[in-house]
Amino acid sequence: MRLTPEQVEIIKHSAAEVFGGGVSVRLFGSRLDDGARGGDIDLLVESPLEIEGKMDKMLTLTARLQLRLGDQPIDILVVDPTTPLNPVHRHARETAQTL
């Protein structure tokens, strides 16, 4: 995993601030490959409960992370029980590592 322990804590703390403590945050995509370079930070945020204002919260988290981690590409998928899963969601769930 190509995130520092400090970056992991910033991501987890920021997600809890925005979505509440009941969400899980997992990393998927190229940042899981220790041999790769660059790439965006792909995050899967999952909640067992329905999230009100899902899009607004996703945008808020993206902005906070860019301020706290530096201006770099961050992609966030948010999944709750009402989310219709598509292939990207399924791939993220299958390959992601919990932060």
Rank of each mutant, 00 (worst) to 15 (best):
V45K: 10
E9G: 01
D56S: 13
I10R: 09
G39I: 09
K57C: 02
Q7I: 00
V18G: 05
D34Y: 13
E94D: 13
T95K: 13
T82A: 15
T98G: 00
R93P: 00
R26P: 00
G39L: 08
T4P: 01
L27V: 15
D75E: 15
F28D: 02
L99E: 02
T62C: 08
I41D: 11
L69F: 08
V45S: 08
F19G: 07
V8D: 07
P81A: 03
V8E: 13
D75T: 05
L3R: 05
L65P: 01
Q97I: 11
D33R: 15
T83A: 12
I11C: 03
D75F: 06
G20I: 04
V45D: 05
A96R: 03
S47R: 11
L77T: 07
G22D: 15
E94N: 10
Q97D: 06
M58S: 15
P84Q: 14
R68I: 02
I10W: 02
V25M: 06
T95F: 06
R64I: 11
A15P: 07
G35I: 00
G53A: 10
V25C: 08
G70Y: 11
G29V: 05
E6C: 00
I51A: 05
P81V: 02
G20F: 08
D80F: 02
D75C: 04
T82L: 14
A96W: 02
E6D: 09
G21E: 11
E52P: 00
F19R: 10
D75V: 00
G20Y: 09
S14A: 15
I74W: 11
L43V: 01
L27D: 05
V79N: 09
M55E: 13
A63I: 01
D33M: 09
V88S: 11
L3V: 11
G35V: 01
E17F: 08
V8L: 03
R31C: 04
L67G: 07
R68P: 01
Q7F: 07
L49F: 13
P87F: 14
S30D: 07
P48L: 11
L99A: 03
G21A: 02
G38Q: 04
S24M: 01
G22T: 09
S14M: 03
M58G: 15
L67A: 13
G35W: 11
D42L: 05
S47D: 01
L69E: 07
S24Y: 05
R2G: 10
A63T: 00
N86P: 00
V78K: 11
V8S: 10
I11H: 07
M58L: 14
H13G: 05
V18P: 08
P48N: 12
P81Q: 07
P81L: 06
T95N: 09
N86W: 08
L85T: 06
R93F: 14
S24H: 10
